[in-house]
């Protein structure tokens, strides 16, 4: 039991972050906060990858002619570099949308936006 809690602490952190981020995306009404939640959610995935690539006692995976024979797995790090880029792009696009939404609706609260949209639907 203790081993499950402590020995896998990295996964517990990942799960915690994941849930926090996911909850923020779903439950928050503020569009900007949703983006932040999405970021936390994605970050937890980055951690998941990085921590699974780590080999206990391994060093950085740079081929060293004299010695070190245990390296961490570099591939997850490489993948996550890509994923970070994707995440940044998503955040940028999302924030750009948030700015434009704010310009045309004057608010970032989801329920208020929905109200405005319903009113416009009624007029149309």
């Amino acid at each position: 039991m203790l081993e499950t809690v402590l020995g896998l602490y990295n996964y517990w952190i990942v799960i915690l972050l994941m849930m926090a981020g996911f909850y923020t995306v779903i439950a928050r009404g503020n569009l900007a906060k949703k983006i932040i939640g999405l970021n936390i959610f994605q970050t937890s995935v980055f951690l998941l990858y990085i921590s699974m690539g780590y080999v206990e006692g391994g060093t950085a995976p740079i081929v060293d002619p004299d010695g070190a024979d245990l390296y961490t797995n570099p591939l997850p790090s490489v993948l996550i570099l890509t994923a970070i880029v994707v995440g940044v792009a998503t955040t940028a696009l999302g924030l750009a949308l948030v700015v434009r939404i704010r310009e045309s609706y004057g608010t970032l609260e989801e329920d208020e936006i929905l109200e405005i949209e319903d009113r416009r639907d009624g007029e149309a």
Binding site: G94, L97, V98, S104, I113
Partner: peptide, 10 residues
């Protein structure tokens, strides 16, 4: 379209 895109993005 903006809110739709936003929802799609999330």
């Amino acid at each position: 379209a903006l809110t739709a895109a936003y929802r799609y993005l999330i």
